[in-house]
């Protein structure tokens, strides 16, 4: 279980997270929804311990960092490293015996090519493969569906559901509502640096409708497109 208590993060005068509180239980998929710049990635970086923050993050399964698979929106790849070498590095860093990685190449990536030459979607799939091979207990997936082809999107959704069955904790953000409604048990709306109350599956349709009315239509009006 991960407990986030009154998490605050600011960059200069910009208060990005302003008291995020939530309890995340194993075997559940949590969706984080928010506008661009609302602080989703900052929240993920805080959870991963990549940012200093105020408040508390408690994890009862040991050291969260060592059990966490982190997929960032734009995964970073060193130049001159092949996909295969990247996967091996990621496994070895966690002392995982990776076995025959070519057989575990779930997205059929060209692993003998330099990772830097991959397309955006391929990079995302490579980074996702790496954190899956690491056998993590908690997964943070920042926009895992973004830039990825349809087949892989379906596969990623299935992988998330399978991880849930395996009692893993998955936290993901997405700007595609259907992917969230297909996979998530609860959704948190991140607005003005705070979480909304958890939104449950049967409330998703209402959430989508209210978001559409509150934000989209108002903005279309600004362009005279209503």
């Amino acid at each position: 279980m991960i407990k986030i208590l009154n998490l605050k993060k600011e960059f200069g005068e910009n208060q990005v997270l302003n008291g995020v509180t939530a309890t995340l239980v194993e075997g559940n998929v949590y969706g984080i929804v928010g506008e661009n710049g609302s602080g989703k990635t900052t929240l993920f970086r805080c959870l991963a311990g990549l940012e200093n923050y105020k408040g508390e993050i408690e994890y009862d399964g040991g050291m969260l960092k060592n059990e966490l698979g982190l997929l960032l929106t734009e995964p970073f790849f060193m130049t001159k490293i092949t996909g295969l070498e990247y996967l091996k590095f990621m496994c070895q860093a966690r002392s995982i015996n990776s076995g025959n990685l070519l057989e575990r190449n779930v997205f059929d990536l060209p692993l003998n090519r330099y990772a830097e030459t991959y397309s955006t979607g391929m990079k995302k799939k490579l980074a996702l493969t790496a954190i899956l091979l690491q056998e993590n207990k908690v997964f943070i997936l920042d926009e895992p569906f973004n830039g990825v082809d349809i087949q892989s999107n379906i596969l990623i959704s299935e992988i998330i559901l399978k991880l849930k069955v395996l009692n893993k904790t998955i936290i993901l953000s997405s700007h595609i509502f259907s992917t969230l409604s297909d996979t998530c048990d609860q959704i948190f709306l991140l607005k003005k640096g705070e979480f909304s109350n958890p939104i449950l599956k049967h409330e998703y349709a209402e959430l989508e409708k209210s978001m559409k009315e509150e934000t989209v239509l108002k903005r279309l009006d600004k362009l005279g497109l209503k």
């Binding site: 001159k80 490293i81 070498e85 070895q92 330099y114 030459t117």
Partner: peptide
Amino acid sequence: SSNYTFPIPRPFSEFPFEFSVGLRK
């Protein structure tokens, strides 16, 4: 630029990355 798709072979195993990257550069 470094956008060659054919990786330059390096004499050691995949670890450590500093040497894989460094030797290729």
